[in-house]
Amino acid sequence: MISCSSSILPETWNNSNQLMLSLIAPPENLSPEYFSSLLNQYGPVQQVKILNKSLMDFKVFVEMGNSEAAKLAKQFLDQLSSNFVKCSYYHEEKHIQPENTKNCQFETLGDQTQSSQKFKHQTSLNDNLKEDDEKPSSIKTLSISQKINKSSQQIQPTNTLSVNGIKGKELDAKKLYNIFSNFGNIDKILLIKLKNFAFVKYLKDDNAMFVFQNCQKLEFFDSMISITFVAEDSIDKLIDLDNLYEEQDYFIGCEESDRFNCNNKMILLPPSQVLHISNLKKVSSNAETMWDVFSEFGVVQAVKVLNTQFKFMCLVKMETLKQAIEVVALMHNEEIDNRNVQISFTKTKI
């Protein structure tokens, strides 16, 4: 068994019509039919086999009808830029042949997933799933003419998100908390730097939905992120695999870390270039100090002082949204003049 992800293939692979998909932390209800319905828009799907079905080693063999269909399918999967699915060309001397060339064969082997609970959620492939009532049988055959009813598939949000494409040497779970706690109280965060993604679990589903709708395609340190829903127990499944992360890459929320009073209505605001800086000392709450402090993270366009008799606050506008996000990540709850300041996004204009 050989696989290759390079665009420059050995000469004997030029007409390869076989692909191997590797998934990290997939949902439990993925089926061969799902992959067929996903890829048959690029050409006929001859064969789909789930070769292994475990949390960290979920492999799917796909045989397209021809090499051009395989090329188009691979281009589609590569464009997803997902940390959960990697697609490579596959080759072996003895090709796996379907039992009936008129049928599209689906087979599941080595199913090692065990759980008493099923989860409905959207996958990192950005498509919808229909949950199976039972585990797939060892071998299942489906006619090509048999249609998958996509209209019955519905998006099932959860309170847990995967933030994909995270890159940045300075990042850890606490800095991710500084950003994502702006959108709701956090239960847990797990950063997997090896795969450039993090799981963020909120206490409420609505908060996760807000992030899903308002934080897509943000410039985030050294990359651009995308966000998908994952199963609510995704962090729990990975937490024992401590070789995947370091201690500072795991964050557990508590009442002290909550930014929102659970008894009050939450007013959630999307990321913005204008930041609200609070809990300042009187001596620090001036334009000159704010300019000096935040110019280290980019270009400060404007500063507005909001002092009252007892509270000292400022608004700081950064040149770009990327710079503002980095300020929140790196400076929230850090000291300015020996006092830990609070930084949040705001819709207020300067």
Rank of each mutant, 00 (worst) to 15 (best):
D206C: 14
F183G: 13
Q146V: 09
N214T: 14
L142C: 12
D187R: 15
I192C: 07
I225M: 01
G184V: 03
S145E: 14
T228V: 11
S181W: 00
F180Y: 14
K169H: 08
I235Q: 02
K140W: 00
K188L: 05
P157F: 04
L171M: 08
F221T: 09
L191S: 06
D172C: 13
S145R: 08
Q153M: 14
D206H: 15
Q153Y: 13
T160N: 08
L129G: 07
K130F: 09
K175W: 00
N164R: 09
D133G: 13
N196A: 11
L190T: 06
S138G: 08
K140Q: 13
V211C: 10
Q153A: 15
A173R: 01
E134K: 11
D236I: 05
Q154K: 15
S145M: 10
V200N: 02
K174M: 11
L191D: 07
T141Q: 12
I235M: 02
I144P: 15
Q156P: 04
D222T: 04
G168H: 00
K201C: 10
K193D: 13
T160M: 02
F180S: 10
V230I: 06
T158M: 06
S138I: 11
P136H: 03
I225L: 02
Q216W: 05
K175I: 04
F220I: 07
I139P: 06
K140M: 10
F229V: 08
K188I: 03
K201P: 07
V211W: 02
M209W: 07
I166S: 02
D132A: 14
L194W: 02
I189Y: 01
D132V: 12
I144L: 12
S143M: 10
L129D: 10
F210Y: 12
N196V: 05
Q156S: 15
P136I: 02
M209Q: 15
I155S: 13
I144Q: 12
K140H: 10
Q156F: 14
I186V: 04
T228D: 14
L218S: 09
D132C: 12
K169C: 11
D132G: 11
L203F: 10
L129H: 05
L129C: 08
D236Y: 03
N149G: 00
K188N: 13
S138W: 07
I144Y: 04
I139Q: 14
I227L: 01
N207M: 12
N182G: 13
L203S: 08
N164T: 07
D187F: 07
I192M: 03
N182S: 15
N178T: 05
D236T: 11
E219G: 02
L161P: 04
K175Q: 10
V230C: 09
V230G: 01
F229R: 03
S151K: 07
L171C: 05
I235Y: 01
K130M: 11
P157C: 04
T160W: 01
C215T: 03
S181D: 01
S234W: 03
V230M: 00
S226E: 06
Y202E: 01
V163G: 00
N159R: 15
N149H: 07
F210T: 10
M209P: 03
K135E: 02
